[in-house]
Structures are given as structure tokens and as C-alpha cells.
Nucleic acid binder design. Structure first.
Lengths: 346, 346
DNA sequence: CTGAAAGCGCTTACAG
DNA sequence: CTGAAAGCGCTTACAG
């Protein structure tokens, strides 16, 4: 492996000249240097460069769960724009743990030029670490209790919750339930509020038991749906606040022999590749997933280029995708209880 | 941000002594140094360390598609074991493009200590780059035409193809089809061979048109299934060689009004979170996905620790998960043609 | 055990 | 335009 000194010697110039040539300046020995570089297959040492410049050519992407299709898409988006930049992507998975996140970030901030983070909760210490290290931070999908001071790419979670409620309301449902994500996360709280506010604005009371708070995981969705099914007065329609919990809820409904949409209408937040193939095809609130990653990386690149404008928050819209898992409320009462009896006889 | 010199000055020792203290050697001024480090919140500069030591504390994970749930799981596995190591994970997405992969790796090999790669094809130049840079390389899921010289974590793809064929054969099917991945990838070729060999060993001819070679993408699976449905003599059972193509195939079948498993039995390679929820629930060949990532990273860590044993290949087993998308062949002939006519009348 | 010094590979004022 | 030199922050023989 050859160094700049080797090139300089072969081209009979100083290393300073080689360095200048590399950055595009005009030098007399250009041809000789070019030849020497080819001959020696010289490649500048990034580490040495970083030591001088202080720039590390690395950006960290910290997500709660890479196996969640939404975050996988975000990562793909971030990675794709990193290609047009000199930055590499470090990936970190916090497993939805604020503790893991904090531990990772305390060190991480010193090893990268910028961070794209979907914080595990809204109370996390990340910004303190980032600010101490002077590293720009972009929030994606989730933000902090007082996250206004940071660039963010969010989704209109409140609006998405509202869209879900409106759709269910329009179909005539009056006993509505939500399987919410953690209320100390942005999407957990906002989707919850959007849904509940809309239901209540329609003059409908949502009892405590119909507001299940879970953890954005499949198992949480499963448990929450089970709880809902066990209610003395079960709901007729359910909104599940993320893709993984929707999968869990569907499994619970299936396991208990509940029929969708005959017994329960179900609407999920975030689309799934297989959603149209489910029977019934799943109705969802969707958004541009990869695009969220793309925008976050662009925002970060802007900061890395030295931009010091006030923090900017980009809020993407959600769209209702009507498929077949939500149906008009059936006139007669207690449909689920009746069918449940039948199911038990099998 | 303070440096080792700041600490040395405050503790009234030389920087050499601080450095020695850091690496655990016994030094007289230990207490003073410890105090100075706390006081100044000193953190060693990784870049400077790397410049001296040559180790970069970075490992690259290069996959064809992070949004493929299998690779997302692999990445999760790799990331999780990186936590117990001093290495960070660089993530690269090649989008199944050999060209993109080659471009990325030519540079990448100089910026990391090791590489975990799922090559886009078996003809790629990666090992040349890696060897030139003296960087250990571990293949995951896929290997090269002559990949024996590298550590690898593969799956018994041939056996998986065989299991799929055997299951279909046992159900009485005689007109079998495969939607294969690219035959210049390990899993594409091996699953193909395992399936076709087994079918032929049973004395059954597989006509050319029933061997659809696609691209491991959803769209490829869709097109291939469409082609199969259009055959004068359509198959009665289909094996789809990866999760994304299975989704595509299912969409095609659904769009064309074909019924599974009445008209076609369908078995896929790789499980999907939603597979049990499909109607019918999807029968698949599954494997330990996260575990593959875990093992690959362990293998790499071993090399990074200096191990020079001959290359090791770990081959994981596949398992048949019988659900409901494969059914016994129905006695009468031309079921699909009959139902297709009915479908067209709608 | 400890310090002075060299060196990892590069960039960039500073003189010329 | 060009070269000699300093310096980025650290580690490690080399003397003591």
C-alpha cells in the first residue's frame, strides 16, 4: 500500500504538491503525478485525512428495529442518498430500548459527523450528547418532548389517527378501540390523540378499556387485541397504531376465531407488502417510507455542508388506503358474541 | 474537547504515561491521571488511534436489499454481536446490482477492517479487492463460484429445494413449476437444482416453460407466475425461491382469480411474518435468519482477532413449515382452466 | 516506571 | 506554482 510520500518521490515533487494535485489545484507536474498515482495504485488514507480535517465521513443511523419494514425502508432511503455524498452509514439498532440508545449514543457522537435518529422515547438524552460533541442531529419518524430545536422528518401522525377514526366513524362504528404505541413516543402519542380526539369530537365516549397502550411490537399487538376481545362490551372496530402490532392483532383475531370485517373492522397504521393479499385485504394508513429516509439524509447533508438556518421540520402526509378489512357496522347487536359461540363448538 | 496532552499537563506527567495508563499498565500517577481524565472528560480520539494502529473499528455489511425481511434480519444479527465488540457496522445496499457492488467495494475495502457480504452474483470481483487490501471477507447467504477460500454462512439451499419438491410430490403433484432466482447467485442456482433434481429423480419431466428464472424481486415473481398461468398446460404446483417473489406470485395468482390451493399449490422459500395470516396460510421452507447474521459476525470477529485457520463454511438447515397453501392434487384434470373460465365471466 | 522523540499519512499556512 | 515544516492525537520503541 503506497502513501503520498511514495507518489511524491516517484513524481519527483514534494508531498505538498501531490496533495494539491489531489484536490484539483493546478500544478506543473500534473502528468508525472498522475502517472505515479496510477503506477503505485495510490489511494489517500482516509484516517490520516480525518485526523487533520476532523471530518470522519460517517453518519450514524439509529433506529429502534431494523426488522420493522418501515425502518428498513428508512434505512434504504438514507443509504441511497449517502451514495452521492462522501459519507458512510453506520447502523445501530436500539431494540426500542431507551437505555441501549443512550449507551450507544454517548460514545457514538464522538465517532461520526452527524446522526439520524428515531429516538426510542421522547425523554432520551441524545441531544445533550450530540450537542456536547457538536454533532448535527436529525430526528426521523419520532422526536423529543422539546424537539423543535432539531431538524426532523415526521409524518402527520395526528392526522393519520384522525383519518383512521373518520373512516371507521363513516362506516357507522360507535364502539371504537385503539391499540396505541408507547405514549412517550411521538407516533405513539400523536396517533393516539388524533384518533381519540376525533372519536370524542363525534360525541362518542371511548372507555378506558378500549384504549390499549402497547409497545409497537407484534406481541404487544397480540395481547392488546386479546384484551379487547375479552371485553364485556367488545368494540366493533379497531385501529392499530403500527404495522407490527397490526400483525399481532390479526393473529389474535384469527386465533380467537373472530372474523374480519364481519365481527371487527380493523385498520392499521403503515402499509405492509402483504396487506393487499390478506383475506380480507387490510385497510391501512400509509405514507412514503423510503422518502422519509431520503429527506432526513438530505437535511443532515445540508447541516454537514455548514448550513446554520433554524431547525426545519418536514411533515409528510398520510393517506388512507381503503381495502377490505373495514366494513359498515352491521345493524344487529352483539355479532361477535354470537359468532364466538359458534366458533367454540368446533 | 480535550486531548491526551491536556490530561498529561493537568496530571503533571508525560503523554506517554497517560497513554500507558489508558491501556491498563501500572503507573505511579494513576490517581492523578484518573482525576484529570474525569475533570476534563477526556475521550481518546479514535481517528488518531486508527492512524497509528491501522485498525479502523469498522466492519461493512453489504446486502442486496435491506428491505427484504431476510436481509433485515441478517443485519440485525450482525449488529447485535457487534455490540460486544469494538467494531461499528457500516451498511451498504447494492440493490441486487453487481455493478453497484463492485463500485462500492473497490473503495470500501480500504476503509474497513472486515466485510460481510451477500454478493449480488457469483462472478463478482469482491474477493480480489478484499485480498488486495488484506481485509477478511465473510460471505453470507450467497457465495462465489469458487468461494471455498472464504468463511461463509450459508443455508442448505439444495436441501431446501429438495424439501419443497418432496412435499409437492407427496401431495401427488406431477406438473411442477419453479420460480427461480438468478442462476448466477448461490441460492438461485442451488434451490433450483435441489428442486429440479428431486422432481426428475421421481421420474418426472420438467418442461422448460415450468422453469421460470426471475430476479428475487416481487415484480419478477409476479411476471413469472403470470407466465406460468398462461401456459397451455399450466402446472398444478409452484415453488417460489424467495420471499419477495412469493409475494409477487401470490399477487399474480390473486389478480388472475386463481385459487390457492384449489387451482395451484404454492410453497415459498423463506418465511414471512404474515405468512400464517394469509388465506390460505402460506407453506414455506424456513431457516434461522437472525442467526445467520450472528454467525457471520462471529466468524469475522475470529479473523479480526488474528485467526488464520482454513476457511470455514457453516451451513444451516432449512425446515418445511406446512401450512395450507399446498394441497393434494385434485383427481380431475384441468381444474384451473375450468375455474378460469368461470372467473372470466365475472 | 517514565519521558523525549519519532512516526502513522495527510493538509495547510508560511515563505519563497 | 512549489517546498519545508508544523501539526492533527495518539502509540511505542528507545534510553534512562
Amino acid at each position: 500500500l503506497s502513501t503520498i510520500s511514495d507518489v511524491a518521490r516517484l513524481a519527483e515533487v514534494s508531498i505538498a504538491t501531490v496533495s494539491r494535485f489531489q484536490r484539483g489545484e493546478k500544478v506543473r507536474a500534473a502528468e508525472r503525478i498522475r502517472a505515479a498515482i496510477d503506477e503505485l495504485e495510490y489511494r489517500p488514507n482516509h484516517t490520516a485525512r480525518s485526523l487533520r480535517s476532523g471530518i470522519k465521513h460517517a453518519v450514524a443511523v439509529v433506529v429502534p428495529d431494523v426488522t420493522n419494514p418501515f425502518f428498513a425502508a428508512v434505512v434504504k432511503g438514507v443509504e441511497s442518498v449517502s451514495r452521492e455524498s462522501p459519507y458512510n452509514i453506520f447502523l445501530y439498532n436500539t431494540d426500542e430500548s431507551a437505555q441501549a440508545e443512550d449507551a450507544v449514543l454517548a460514545d457514538l457522537v464522538w465517532e461520526v459527523d452527524g446522526i439520524i435518529l428515531a429516538p426510542s422515547t421522547e425523554q432520551v438524552q441524545t441531544p445533550v450528547h450530540a450537542q456536547r460533541a457538536g454533532v448535527p442531529l436529525v430526528f426521523i419518524d419520532r422526536t423529543l418532548a422539546q424537539g423543535e430545536h432539531f431538524d426532523s422528518v415526521l409524518v402527520d401522525n395526528y392526522g393519520g389517527g384522525r383519518q383512521a377514526a373518520e373512516h371507521l366513524l363513516e362506516l357507522g362504528h360507535r364502539r371504537l378501540a385503539i391499540i396505541a404505541g408507547p405514549l412517550n413516543t411521538t407516533p405513539g402519542r400523536e396517533r393516539f390523540k388524533g384518533f381519540v380526539d376525533t372519536v370524542q369530537a363525534a360525541g362518542i365516549e371511548m372507555v378506558e378499556e378500549c384504549r390499549q397502550v402497547a409497545d409497537f411490537r407484534e406481541s404487544g399487538g397480540y395481547q392488546a387485541a386479546l384484551a379487547l376481545l375479552g371485553l364485556a362490551q367488545p368494540p366493533t372496530a379497531i385501529f392499530s397504531s403500527n404495522n407490527l402490532m397490526t400483525i399481532g392483532a390479526l393473529k389474535a383475531l384469527t386465533d380467537m376465531g373472530a372474523r374480519v370485517p364481519e365481527d371487527f373492522s380493523l385498520i392499521g397504521f403503515d402499509d405492509l407488502k402483504l396487506a393487499p393479499l390478506l383475506r380480507p385485504a387490510l385497510t391501512v394508513i400509509e405514507r412514503s417510507e423510503v422518502q422519509q429516509g431520503v429527506l432526513a439524509m438530505r437535511l443532515l447533508l445540508r447541516r454537514l455542508a455548514g448550513n446554520v438556518d433554524p431547525a426545519r421540520t418536514i411533515t409528510l402526509e398520510t393517506r388512507l388506503v381503503k381495502r377490505a378489512s373495514c366494513a359498515p357496522l352491521r345493524p344487529p347487536e352483539a355479532v361477535w358474541r354470537a359468532s364466538r359461540k359458534k366458533g367454540q363448538q368446533r
